[in-house]
Amino acid sequence: MKISIVVTLKKEVLDPQGKVIQQTLQNMGEKAVFNVRQGKYFELDLNENNYEKAKIMAEEICKKLLANLVIEDYKIMDNS
């Protein structure tokens, strides 16, 4: 089954890229945008059909590799 994961910088950690993208959007006239956070998106294809089990595996994988827990959070997307 497919598991989708989004990794972003922790809320309290500076996101230089997000900041510049937000400023650029402002300059381009998108005045409503007051904050941007940038992240990474992963899709894992797993040999596992049970979503709950797959989620636990994904969780481990995030901790082990995908997210740098010093500065990043991960979110496993709901299966839809």
């Binding site: 890229q17 510049v20 993208i21």
Partner: peptide, 14 residues
């Protein structure tokens, strides 16, 4: 330019 944030060259091109 712009730290190469988002994609290199992208924001500069705007």
């Amino acid at each position: 330019s712009y730290g190469d944030y988002l994609r290199c060259g992208c924001i500069g091109s705007k």
